[in-house]
Design a protein around this nucleic acid. Sequence first.
DNA 1: ATATGTTATTGAATATTATTCAAAAATTAA
DNA 2: TTAATTTTTGAATAATATTCAATAACATAT
Lengths: 150, 150
Amino acid sequence: MKDIRQKIVALLKEGYATPQIARMAKRLHEPSTTIHYNIKRLEKDKVIIRYKGIFTYAKIDQGYCTFLLINLVQEKYADPESVAREIAKSDLVESVNVITGDYELLLKLRCKDVDEYYAFVKGAIKKHGFAKVISLTSIKELKGEFVQKS
Amino acid sequence: MKDIRQKIVALLKEGYATPQIARMAKRLHEPSTTIHYNIKRLEKDKVIIRYKGIFTYAKIDQGYCTFLLINLVQEKYADPESVAREIAKSDLVESVNVITGDYELLLKLRCKDVDEYYAFVKGAIKKHGFAKVISLTSIKELKGEFVQKS
DNA sequence: ATATGTTATTGAATATTATTCAAAAATTAA
DNA sequence: TTAATTTTTGAATAATATTCAATAACATAT
């Protein structure tokens, strides 16, 4: 049942990981109880939010990466945040930022392919009011949330 | 010694976390050995690259987030990748993408403040050949690698 | 359909690791 | 300096990952 793999990946996207206290202890030459104590503090203080898995996106149907620069229609211009919050709900959306400059929003999308990307943009323009959308397609990702690559 | 905290954060940025097999097993109603087996497969197949911590950036001196759209100088235009690889080495750089459109590179920076950001840009323009740089400053991050927020 | 090789599932045993606890040390505030 | 608070740490325990071997499921060829 390959089904389990997908479920595992889904869980690891959200969290379901935990720090390796013993390994950190060895690396830092400190007792593991000291590391444990300090990690719990960092968690309580919300410095650390969670622990999650990092993936090879092409292998989980998210190989097509694009950035969208968005101008909102006049009516929504005053409150980009509520639009952003709505957009953020989509699984295809990796990040949403309200920005300064010529555009109001910057999205990072991770889609399976151009078709999925197109469907998203088409739907989003209609659903939320986008006056203008500039798409920047990533043709090579040299660094991402997952540290370095080739 | 608050020093330990910083070291822990540094390690968790790179990895030093591990999946919670038992918790996933309960959640998915599967034996933990089944989850274990499948996770190891995902790791071997490089579907899962690593596990890392996610932070509140403002609390680890990275509260100032910007995106840079970059045009390379003529001499470097033919090989944006090698420039990108160099830039990627900086700790301030969260992501580097070679993109299509009016610009060659898109960077995401996480700095402590405007000063650090300015120092980076100033240095980068000189060091790597940037013909033009457009900065998009994030004034609100509604979604990031760390799932949802307020 | 049946045999054969491969991959996946699983329980039981073991090895590792996280967690708790209590005491001591270090730091901070008064 | 003293008192209060936070941090460090070792020992004991609890929880979890890992290994192993057996079985099941699946795919492929005959």
